[in-house]
Design a protein around this nucleic acid. Sequence first.
DNA 1: GGGTTTAATATTGTTGACAATATTTAAATC
DNA 2: GATTTAAATATTGTCAACAATATTAAACCC
Lengths: 220, 220
Amino acid sequence: MSDFTFKQQANTSLREKVTSDLREAILSGNLSPGARIREMDVAEQMGISRGPVREAIRQLEREGLLISYPYKETVVADLDSNEVRDILIPIRLHIESFVIKRYLDKMDEAFFANLQSIVDEMRQAFQNDQKSRLVELDILFHQQILELAAERTVLLTWQSIVNQIRLHFTKNLPFFKLDHLETDHQQLLDALRTRDPAVAEQAIIKHTASEDSLLWIATK
Amino acid sequence: MSDFTFKQQANTSLREKVTSDLREAILSGNLSPGARIREMDVAEQMGISRGPVREAIRQLEREGLLISYPYKETVVADLDSNEVRDILIPIRLHIESFVIKRYLDKMDEAFFANLQSIVDEMRQAFQNDQKSRLVELDILFHQQILELAAERTVLLTWQSIVNQIRLHFTKNLPFFKLDHLETDHQQLLDALRTRDPAVAEQAIIKHTASEDSLLWIATK
DNA sequence: GGGTTTAATATTGTTGACAATATTTAAATC
DNA sequence: GATTTAAATATTGTCAACAATATTAAACCC
């Protein structure tokens, strides 16, 4: 593990807190791919016992962020951009398309206004060169849509892929045509506003393909 | 000296055994949807402590078989067949299609023979009225294909959905046209044997749609 | 008697010690 | 000196006791 250290944990809702702190450390790059995770180190730095740390590790393993070798060690996963593009992004497209088709009539003006504010902030973030914020806003935009779903399966699936997608975006951010991000989302939002199922579905398909093409390096 | 070596013994921790035992109890119907899971009960019955049981519960939660309410209780999930059909089966189709396209030329005669033996056993199981065996064979057939993949993401995704799909099939078994199962898989196998990517992809799409239509009750 | 507060109970959450396993280091053998 | 074997160390796996929280039951007030 690098010389990065965790700050002390407050004594409340530990497992979840540990999970999100560890996840944040990975997503922010403080823990790089291949970095070893020692239960004891994490526990000591957070000032807690190993139990909750173990459970957090198991969860992040299932989120694809950690790889655990029984009785040996746990390391930060090295994400393959091809796998994200060929497997996880299409899965996101599928569940998002499902949700849009089923919940299009549940989208009210407040919902659209919320999405609009995210797009607006994208423009600001781009102008102010807050690149990592752009990734967060991108994820947030799509999450707003997915959280319309009452289906447990949709949320479960989203949770299992979202952080790998987030890491993929962050990792490849230098190779993104960032100026297209905002207009691309604006177009999708405008399509949703028509409330026309056919228009909306075509838009999300096009949006997803476009998002991929924004990566101007060949990751193949 | 031959270069034969034994496969290394799977490093089976207590946690993994508990996970598979609990999972088996759910899949076999010994634990019905809604049934409460008490860590202490499970631990006592298995003669172990609660630690590994807790970790097993967290895993099965991620697999969609259990639902956990913090500080309250854990219950066996009540699977929604519509969600399996509309969300999980399409995801399976996607990863399976991906694997077939990418690994079609890695399928050798031994591989096809293996699939053929599974199909053959399907016919026997149908004739002998071993219905639950049919489900296992169906899952096994598809798993053989998916395990060709070297991509971690494929296996991770498969693990997160396979048991919900298995439970879905088992639950709706009485409503399946069981006699079509064998021929349906035979057709897919024959298509793979052509080693023609276009033929193979069309076959898996058709197969998945057909598998759904074998359910002669409306789950919509 | 209905509703509210408070105690009792049940269950999950957390901990620190101990056990099992893998890796590293040192010793022994050739 | 290289290879094997054995001891030492590091790390994960498991356990049983304790703490925190939610549910239930009881007591209390009006």
